[in-house]
Design a protein around this nucleic acid. Structure first.
Lengths: 126, 126
DNA sequence: TTAAATGTATTACAGGTGTAATCCATAAGG
DNA sequence: CCTTATGGATTACACCTGTAATACATTTAA
């Protein structure tokens, strides 16, 4: 799988939200959180294109960039490999960590219950 | 927090399991999974000491290394920052990814139910 | 028509990382 | 005692990353 660095990820996240965008649009969108020089963002865009994470169409002499990989796919793959690396593949201990730090909210719990219900349904019908 | 690279993490994991260990013990323990030269492992041990992740006592002219940070602490911090970065701070979608790939087992589900029960208990008694 | 601005492409450069090899001191063997 | 082996310390080196600056080709404004 394509390796995306931390700084690059921020750029991807902008384009996962709205797409396609010109380099300047991306710079503007990042302006809020990141204190990056325009040139820095352009470098990141370039690297992402080189890595095959972004594609672009030409709009006059500017480029319009768009993701070549889906955020969901990226999240899935990263989630799996992270949990593998840090938690020996078991996801529950990670959730336990969140619980212990009071980082679970009602929405999370609701979603987790739903997932568990579906899992059990799945089991039964095997 | 101390930054631990991927290769370094494997060394830490050996020492989180058994501690303290000589460099050679660590090399031996890693021998199974990793195809690393002895010198490579020594380099990693050195870097971890420099970073303050490992300490050591002298045993003759050899060193006995031990972790200076707890695995749990490391897992907590990494879990938080990973979920923040990739999942905007929400842990449930990560679990959903596992579920969708059939990576949840009965143990996980059991633990998750337990966590949810505790969370609800917690809520009630507020 | 010529100079300035603007977009992308190329280059820069220090610090981290993977992956060792070499150096150096000393302990151990002959 | 002298040589060799062995442990840690130092050095190596290419690639990735963060963070730009510079170069180059055009478009556009004057």
């Amino acid at each position: 799988m394509i390796e995306i660095s931390n700084a690059e990820l921020s750029v991807m996240q902008v384009l996962w939200q709205r797409q396609p965008l010109s380099a300047n649009d991306v710079v503007a969108a990042l302006g809020n959180d990141k204190d990056w020089h325009e040139k820095t963002v352009k470098t990141l865009l370039n690297r992402l294109v080189s890595k095959g994470a972004l594609g672009f169409d030409k709009d006059g002499r500017a480029y319009l960039y768009y993701p070549l990989i889906a955020e969901q796919d990226y999240q899935l793959q990263q989630g799996r490999s992270f949990v593998e690396r840090i938690f020996a593949g078991r996801v529950a201990p990670l959730v336990a960590g969140f619980a212990s730090q009071n980082k679970l909210n009602a929405d999370d719990v609701q979603q987790l219950k739903q997932l568990i219900a579906e899992w059990e349904q799945e089991q039964r019908h095997d």
